[in-house]
Computed example of a mutant assay.
Amino acid sequence: MRGYWPYLLLVVSLGLDAAPRTVDWLDLLPEEDYQAMLDMPEIGHDNIEEAPADFSTDLRQRDRNLPEVMYSTNVVAELDNQELRIAGYPVPLQSNERGLYTSFFLVPYAGACIHVPPPPPNQIILVDYPKGIAIEDIYEPFWISGNLLIDQTSNELADASYRFTADKVWIYDGE
């Protein structure tokens, strides 16, 4: 038994120091949605006026000219309850008494709250971050790490297919 202690300590320490697995937005799409996105014609944002400080635009508006995949709530079941890390852009929702955001959507591209069309629900993550973070620029991406859950959420702004209980939120540093 004495000879196993160094190995046991190594295994325990590796488990404690393991960083969450990094995922990409495409990892959140089931295969059929991924293929439908690839087959979809390019969507332009021509003639869309931007209002950088306006976070109130409804991400739930439907455009009947868009394919159904743009409204998909299909998810990747294997990601449920996984410790993960993903980078994206914030859409602020709720702040605490100090003005730090404790709830926000994370989306794959900047300005999703003001562009048409918005990402599909399976490309929107509702983030709960009780510590709160200042969001001064919705065009500045963040890393989020914590526990990803499959949770169909709907509010007046958007529908989301995933929910993230964040342990850590920080400005995107490329790594």
Rank of each mutant, 00 (worst) to 15 (best):
R2F: 11
G3M: 10
W5C: 09
W5N: 00
W5Q: 07
P6M: 00
P6F: 04
Y7I: 02
Y7K: 03
L8Q: 02
L9H: 00
V11G: 04
V11Q: 07
V11A: 06
L14W: 02
G15D: 01
G15H: 08
L16Y: 09
A18W: 08
A18R: 09
A18N: 04
P20L: 12
P20W: 05
P20Q: 10
P20I: 03
T22F: 15
P30W: 09
P30N: 03
E31C: 01
E32L: 09
E32Q: 13
D33P: 05
D33Q: 05
D33V: 07
Y34N: 06
Y34I: 08
Q35R: 15
M40V: 05
E42L: 15
G44D: 06
G44W: 12
N47E: 15
I48V: 11
I48G: 04
E50T: 03
A51C: 03
A51T: 13
A51H: 12
P52N: 01
D54N: 02
F55I: 04
S56D: 11
S56I: 07
S56C: 11
T57F: 12
D58Q: 05
R60E: 09
Q61F: 15
R62T: 14
N65V: 10
L66H: 05
E68A: 12
E68Y: 10
V69E: 09
M70K: 00
S72T: 08
V75M: 02
V75N: 00
D80A: 00
N81M: 05
L84G: 01
L84S: 01
G88D: 14
Y89P: 05
P90A: 09
P90V: 08
V91C: 03
Q94F: 14
N96R: 00
N96C: 05
N96Q: 03
E97N: 08
R98L: 12
Y101T: 00
T102E: 04
F104G: 01
F105W: 10
V107R: 02
V107F: 01
P108R: 06
Y109I: 07
A110C: 06
G111E: 13
A112L: 09
C113I: 09
H115E: 14
H115N: 12
P117Y: 02
P118I: 13
P118R: 01
P118G: 10
P120I: 09
Q123F: 00
I124Q: 02
I125T: 07
L126N: 08
V127C: 04
V127L: 07
P130G: 00
G132R: 00
I133L: 05
I133W: 03
D137N: 12
I144R: 03
I144N: 04
S145K: 12
S145I: 11
S145D: 14
S145V: 03
G146D: 01
N147Q: 06
L148K: 01
L149F: 14
L149K: 10
L149I: 03
I150W: 09
D151P: 00
Q152C: 08
T153Y: 15
T153I: 12
S154D: 11
S154A: 13
S154T: 14
L157S: 15
A158R: 07
A158M: 10
D159N: 15
A160T: 08
R163I: 09
R163N: 07
R163F: 13
F164C: 03
T165S: 12
D167Y: 04
K168V: 11
K168W: 12
K168H: 13
W170F: 09
I171F: 15
Y172S: 08
E175C: 01
